[in-house]
């Protein structure tokens, strides 16, 4: 890491737009940060430091963590307020919010 194409690739992955004129500066700063992260290469993970079990660890958390809902629980099928394209957000929120991407009762989205 890294050069012009790496940064461009990262921008595509991250869905970010960076101006060509800013690529060099971004590249320099990211390089600096990655070099700092490479410090971890100096750290050797071995059994001594990873499984340091000379102290028995009793977590206070274990007694406290309790799932109230089962993971596959579904919510009750309660009818909700009808939402359609003519739904006016102002009914729920007490301020003026005019959406410009609403036209003829439809929400306009970008082309896929």
């Amino acid at each position: 890491m890294s050069d012009y194409y790496d940064i461009k690739k990262l921008c595509v992955l991250s869905r970010l737009e960076i101006d060509d004129s800013e690529i060099q500066q971004t590249d320099d700063k990211i390089k600096e940060i990655i070099t700092f992260f490479n410090k971890l290469d100096e750290f050797e993970i071995n059994e001594d430091n990873q499984n340091n079990q000379d102290v028995v660890i009793t977590s206070n958390w274990s007694n406290c963590l309790k799932l109230e809902k089962k993971m596959n629980d579904l919510r009750d099928d309660v009818p909700q307020k009808k939402l359609d394209a003519n739904y006016d957000i102002k009914e729920d929120i007490p301020f003026d919010l005019k959406l410009h991407n609403k036209k003829n009762g439809y929400v306009i989205g970008p082309r896929i």
């Binding site: 991250s14 971004t26 990655i34």
Partner: peptide
């Protein structure tokens, strides 16, 4: 933006 880019990099 920088942190998002770095994050995408370390997860790649």
């Amino acid at each position: 933006k920088r942190r998002i880019l770095v994050g995408s990099f370390v997860l790649s």
